[in-house]
Design a protein around this nucleic acid. Structure first.
Length: 105
DNA sequence: TGTGTGACGATCG
DNA sequence: GCGATCGCCACAC
């Protein structure tokens, strides 16, 4: 399984109403740079199979390159799933952060 | 095979 | 406190 496959697999099982960070996905996959995570999503661009809208930055801000409707759409999807927002474009990391360490395969 | 690049992270100014 | 810069590694061309 390629690194991209691992990343996408991790993203695919983020529970509804939860979010995770690029760095966390990278760490859970034994990677050192979070850029690969974003790169993986960018090369696949498959929001149906992989809910990349649940992936945010370390500070809780949404990904700047989300093109499936824009940041507004990404934020709305998260809100519909029950993710709480502290700011207009930042999720509540303390309540909705999902760590793979708790349920890592 | 080698170079460029990227939806980030951390540090420096 | 905020902005800019450097560094990281894996993938595409």
């Amino acid at each position: 399984m390629n690194s991209f496959q691992k990343i996408l697999h991790s993203v695919s099982f983020i529970p509804e109403g939860k979010v995770t960070t690029y760095g966390d996905i990278a760490t859970s996959n034994n990677m050192k740079n979070a850029r690969i995570v974003g790169f993986a999503l960018h090369t696949n661009t498959d929001p149906i199979k992989f809910p990349c809208h649940r992936v945010v930055k370390k500070d809780g801000s949404l990904a700047s390159g989300y093109v499936f409707g824009g940041l507004n759409e990404q934020k709305r999807k998260l809100q519909l799933e029950g993710v709480e927002f502290l700011d207009d474009d930042k999720v509540d990391m303390y309540k909705c952060l999902y760590t793979f360490s708790d349920n890592s395969p």
